[in-house]
């Protein structure tokens, strides 16, 4: 009798657990429905950001007055990651400066990918991966690689990059070593909010 009760409780618990898991199944989607709000069928989009900030582990902030991006969204239903791609050169960072009146340029190398990791209530949480960005200035040539965390909100069409320091300064040219402003191996982060046009809707399931 106890065995059956325990069994029933266990089954009940399992049922509850299943229900719980089933209820949060949308927290672990594998596929995406990506569409344009205007019903268009071309996946091309642009993004515009105001001030963006690159931070380094040592506490330096490099700020750019504005930034832009241009990419292609993977329109469709049941689409697997990446949700969108940003090809080489498709991001521009304007008027970037740092301490001491130093100025920098940032060059987007390779194709960066937008991956969704989770979805809830109209917000996709994910990463931009495969980032390779060359930072250059007088006596400074460095490369930052890795990924950043971000969210995309359907209602505002905003792609927000979160400042978690998940990037790495992978190389600093020893002949142009930025006078020690940036050191090879240190972590870096990026933040900025890009308004995406045309409006997109991304739903994960």
């Amino acid at each position: 009798m106890r065995g059956r009760l325990i069994g029933a409780i266990a089954t009940g618990a399992a049922l509850v657990a299943t229900t719980v898991f089933a209820g949060t199944a949308s927290a672990l989607p594998l596929v995406w429905d990506v569409s344009r709000d205007d019903g268009g069928t071309s996946g091309g989009f642009t993004g515009a950001a105001g001030v963006t900030v690159l931070t380094t582990e040592s506490g330096i902030e490099l700020t750019c007055d504005s930034a832009s991006a241009a990419g292609t969204a993977n329109l469709g239903t049941g689409v697997a990651n990446p949700i969108a791609t940003l090809p080489a050169g498709s991001t521009q960072f304007n008027n970037c400066s740092g301490p001491f009146g130093l100025t920098f340029e940032v060059a987007h190398q390779g194709t960066w990918e937008l991956h969704g990791d989770s979805y809830a209530s109209g917000v996709t949480t994910g990463r931009i991966t495969n980032i390779v960005a060359d930072i250059s200035g007088p006596f400074c040539e460095a490369t930052v690689t890795g990924s950043v965390n971000g969210t995309f909100t359907n209602s505002s069409d905003e792609l927000e990059v979160l400042p978690d320091q998940t990037l790495t300064v992978s190389t600093v040219d020893p002949n142009n070593d930025c006078l020690g402003l940036i050191t090879q191996g240190e972590a870096a982060g990026f933040s900025g909010v890009f308004a995406i046009t045309p409006g997109l809707t991304v739903v994960g399931r």
């Binding site: 080489a88 050169g89 940032v106 060059a107 190398q109 390779g110």
Partner: peptide, 14 residues
């Protein structure tokens, strides 16, 4: 010019 410096030529569109 802006954007020319630092491009390592890895398929940079410019």
């Amino acid at each position: 010019k802006t954007g020319e410096r630092g491009q390592r030529g890895q398929g940079a569109p410019s």
